[in-house]
């Protein structure tokens, strides 16, 4: 029965519709997921819970959009989780321990992230380390180490309101952190599609030699890419501090993996050159919705890992099948 239905559908389906389907694959997955969870849990589709998801997704969403850039250039940034920790520890030291202005603290938080990101870029382009996996693996450990050393592993609590604002406040029912995500994503969308540097990022990921011979300053673009990724780690840290009113050196442990997962589920290619801002948002939302839904169903955390792992593989596999097909044609 179902075979017959699929076949007739396929015949009706014209090229455009197929393209739309493959383009919106992750979105369709998200909608399916939401529908199923709505049926399974009466609490799922309530204003309260939707806003919870919005808030819970925001840290990973911010890291993921930063991560999208290195992945678009066929690279990776493993350091973001550690940079998040270091950024917030430094912010804690400046504002809580030293009692300086919260705005200076925010500046320090973002600057530490961006600074280490810049260092990642320099290591990659000027020291010519062979792959960003290596340089960022190095800075990942360095940053985590410093984050632990600066306070002797002690957490810092009691941040001023100005710092907590982003992660804590609401506008009506909507968390400020999610509004921030939307604003950041819009900016990234414009940056990637409508600016020279944005387009160069795709060009470098697609074919670095062709990009270089087309007059693109590849090193400069890569440094920008890693700096932005680090900056987003700092911003995500700021949101996290707002949510929990404390900074601790083990914050963001292995968050880079969730960020990478969001980017990949969102349809970006590890080979570089392919991936979108909206796909990444959907990837981050899929992870957050899954986690939240599984929590509501009281599914044990260990099992949640298994599900998320399966989703990553399934999402990429579907993409591989699609590409295999388009290359044959």
């Amino acid at each position: 029965m179902s075979q017959v239905v699929v076949k007739t559908k396929n015949e009706v389906m014209n090229g455009t519709l197929k393209r739309v389907l493959s383009k919106f694959g992750p979105l369709i997955g998200l909608i399916l997921l939401i529908m199923v969870l709505t049926v399974l849990s009466p609490k799922f589709l309530t204003v309260n819970n939707v806003m919870n998801i919005a808030r819970q997704s925001s840290i990973n969403a911010l890291l993921a959009i930063g991560m999208l850039l290195p992945i678009l250039t066929a690279g990776i940034d493993l350091s973001v989780g550690s940079l998040l920790a270091l950024s917030i520890m430094m912010m804690g030291i400046v504002t809580v321990n030293m009692g300086m202005s919260p705005f200076l603290g925010i500046l320090v938080c973002l600057a530490v992230g961006a600074g280490f990101g810049w260092l990642n870029g320099i290591l990659l382009t000027k020291l010519r380390l062979p792959h960003p996996f290596i340089s960022t693996l190095g800075t990942m450990n360095i940053a985590r180490g410093i984050a632990l050393i600066v306070t002797g592993a002690a957490p810092i609590a009691g941040f001023p309101y100005a710092i907590q604002f982003l992660g804590r406040e609401f506008v009506g029912p909507i968390p400020v952190s999610f509004l921030l995500v939307i604003v950041v994503y819009v900016i990234f969308h414009i940056f990637l599609t409508r600016t020279q540097t944005g387009r160069y990022i795709y060009a470098i990921g697609g074919n670095p030699e062709a990009a270089r011979l087309s007059g693109i300053n590849v090193d400069r673009v890569l440094i920008i890419v890693y700096t932005i990724s680090g900056l987003m780690a700092g911003l995500a840290g700021l949101v996290m501090v707002g949510r929990v009113n404390s900074a601790f050196p083990l914050a963001g442990l292995s968050y880079e993996l969730d960020a990478i997962a969001a980017v990949i589920i969102g349809g970006a290619s590890f080979m570089g050159g392919v991936g979108t801002v909206w796909g990444t948002l959907i990837g981050a939302l899929i992870i957050a919705v899954l986690r939240n839904g599984l929590n509501l169903l009281n599914v044990p955390a260990d099992f949640q890992m298994t599900v998320i792992g399966t989703v990553i593989i399934a999402a990429v596999f579907v993409d591989v099948l699609r590409q295999r097909k388009s290359k044959k044609a």
Binding site: P155, A157, G158, R168, R243, V244, N245, S246, F248
Partner: peptide, 8 residues
Amino acid sequence: QPDTVVPV
């Protein structure tokens, strides 16, 4: 992390 649960 004791401090982190306070806001929620």
